[in-house]
Computed example of a mutant assay.
Amino acid sequence: MVTERAPEPLSGMQERARGTGLAGALVRACRPRQWLKNLLVFAAPGAAGALDEPRALLVCVGLFALFCLAASGTYLLNDVHDAPADRAHERKRHRPVASGALPVPVAVTAGTLLGALAPLASLALGDLRVTGLIAGYVVLTLAYTRHLRDIVLCDLVVVAGCHVLRAVAGGVAVGVPLTSWFVLVLSLGALLVVVGKREAELRAAGSATPVRRTLGGYTRSYLTQTRTMASGAMIVTYFLWALEPGGTTLWHTLSIVPFVVFVLRYNLLVDRGVGEEPEEIALRDRPIQLTLVTLVALVAAGIHL
């Protein structure tokens, strides 16, 4: 029998968290801010110019919702698994499960239901390949939580792979072909973001023992070199696509500028140590937002004009 520890005094932030009620704690544990990653399902249909078709847009919106369900389910189960370590982390100790605002049984039940509901609900889209991709995402994420994240390099590949799965699912659901250029740029971009996150986490840990086990297997110089490699390869790949003879337009060529500025800006932010939460960069950094809007506008112009 496991003896329960007496609850520790709650901080002011934790008291406010509990004051919002169980429903509020559950919503926060689902991490709505991180649903931003699921916008990747629009990437392939958007690049193919298919989003102006009502059916394709509706399918993508439904797929986005399904990935939000799947992601939230895995976040809840991840937080239950990580609760002991999160309590030792300056920021993560305020998460609903770690702080006690969300009881473990509730988090496990909700996480299991959401993780199972997403692939089951995807059957309504009528494509078993999409169901397989969503189920694969759930399984891969849970395997990452249980074991794969403790393996150096494997943790980078798995998280980047989850980003790629989202984008591939969008293309498959709408029925647009995934070009080699698209997959390469997307994969390199996913690797850049994941490596930047690890580097920022390692910087934040400083001389203290990192909470994430695999961080001890990396060095700052290695992560910086890997980030530089991914950035350079990503830029070159985008150049080759944008300048492909007969395959692109002037608008695509012009999109090189915001694309390069985006990569440079992101690397600058990581060097400043603020890449630990990539979604916060996208939500708060105005230069990043401006370059992304400009990039999307120029690519859209190349497709539709």
Rank of each mutant, 00 (worst) to 15 (best):
R5I: 07
A6I: 13
P9S: 08
L10T: 12
G12I: 08
G12L: 13
R16K: 13
A25V: 03
A25I: 01
V27P: 08
A29S: 15
R31S: 01
N38E: 04
N38Y: 00
L39H: 05
L40V: 06
P45H: 02
A47L: 15
L66T: 00
C68E: 00
A70E: 02
A70M: 03
L76I: 06
L76E: 04
L77V: 09
L77D: 09
H81P: 08
H81D: 12
A83R: 13
A83S: 14
R93V: 05
R95G: 03
S99H: 05
A101G: 10
V104N: 12
A107N: 07
V108T: 11
G126P: 14
V130M: 03
V130F: 01
V130A: 07
G132V: 03
G136L: 04
V139K: 09
H147E: 12
D150C: 11
I151R: 14
A160I: 00
V164N: 11
V164G: 11
G189I: 02
G189T: 10
G196N: 08
R198I: 02
A200K: 01
A200H: 02
A204V: 03
T209Q: 13
R213A: 15
R220G: 13
S221R: 14
S221M: 09
Y222I: 00
R227F: 02
T228K: 05
T228H: 12
G232T: 09
A233Q: 03
I235C: 13
T237Q: 09
L254E: 00
I256W: 10
P258L: 01
N267G: 15
L269P: 11
D271C: 10
D271L: 07
G275Y: 08
E277N: 14
P278G: 02
E279W: 12
E280N: 14
R284G: 07
D285V: 04
I288E: 05
L290R: 13
L295T: 04
L298E: 07
A301L: 15
